[in-house]
Amino acid sequence: MRVTAVTCVKNEGPFLLEWIAFNQLIGVTDHLFYSNDCTDGTDDLLDALAARGICQHLPNPAEGRNYQMEALKDARRRDIVMQADWVWIADVDEFLNIHVGDHTISALVEACDDPQAISINFQFFANDGIEAFEDAPVIGQFTRSHNPDLWCGEAAIEVKSLVRHDFPLKYYGAHRPFQKGKERPKWTDGSARRVPHRFLVAANPRRIRRFPAHGARLHATLNHYALRSLDSYLVKNDRGDVNRENRAFDDTYWRERNDPAWEDTSIQRYLPDLNKALTELKKDKDIKGLHDACVKAHIAKRDELLKQESYREMRAQLRAASTLPPQEEAMLISLGLMDPAA
């Protein structure tokens, strides 16, 4: 089975090898990367990986528009996507945690009875007080998240989707495919249940890319490490959002994803094999050298940012921020269960 992962990146150099190696463990056979405006060596590392046949790397075709959607439009006509049995569109901080069989995409597809699409709910992993960037697998460092069935006071949680080659595709969205005509494809959640009808037909704008997670994660969860360490979050804030031009992350984004109420170490089942795969990749001295240069640039950017008073203030604000999402805090205050001055 040929599975192609498609992603957009900007200054993600320290995290590329882990993401590629992890995806290979779960059955991804091909990677298509689009990069833009990289200053940390991401593009150099991707070029070296591409030269070795480990991925394909293209410049993002967008010109001041929506980077991700322009890339997905371009990806659809690429052989690496057209010839794939399945397409997996995800970001470098998102890891498909498969709970069934041998923990591969093939096992997930079989458990879901070979549908034309599978949408898997996010689980947002908290920073949980980890300040320093460490050049080690992200999936081994961050183990706490919100209650997987509830996020920011809502039961409906965002998804990302695996899409089979025969899906009646109108276009790829970042979170889910959109079908053409009135055809109703066989489309399941991560528990092999048919996705809700209003999600399938995109009838409700608030449910276009989300549906309730309760009962939907029997076979798979999507672990999202949107914050990582405080160091990395500061660098991410400086970078902005790869998917949309001139959008910065703020305190709200951090607080919505830094709820450490739940411990989940299930993805660490992959760690032994992941560490072996990373060791193997780094046996190539050029690849290791380029990875190390990205790490050095990441740390240097942190140091540069912390010379600015605004970033020192941001760091202090994030350290002191409540670990209750703003929506849940407001609800507790409205119910008289929390002092608004607390």
Rank of each mutant, 00 (worst) to 15 (best):
H146I: 00
E94I: 03
N121R: 01
L96E: 10
A117T: 05
A84D: 07
A75R: 05
A48L: 13
A62E: 00
C55P: 09
R65H: 12
C152W: 13
V87S: 09
A62Y: 02
A117P: 04
F142T: 08
D44P: 11
Y67Q: 15
D47S: 09
R77D: 15
I89R: 00
A136I: 14
A136P: 09
D102E: 09
Y34A: 01
D44H: 13
E154G: 14
W86M: 09
D37R: 12
I120G: 02
C152H: 10
S119R: 00
K160M: 04
S119Y: 00
A111Y: 11
R52K: 13
D91E: 10
M69R: 13
Q56D: 14
L32M: 03
F122S: 04
W88S: 11
A62P: 02
V87G: 06
D102H: 05
M82Q: 13
G41V: 03
G53K: 07
V109L: 11
L108M: 11
V138M: 10
A71R: 06
P59C: 05
D114W: 15
I120C: 04
D47Y: 12
N147Q: 08
A50K: 06
A84E: 01
A51L: 07
L32H: 08
S145C: 12
F133L: 06
C112D: 05
E154V: 13
F95C: 00
G140I: 12
N60I: 07
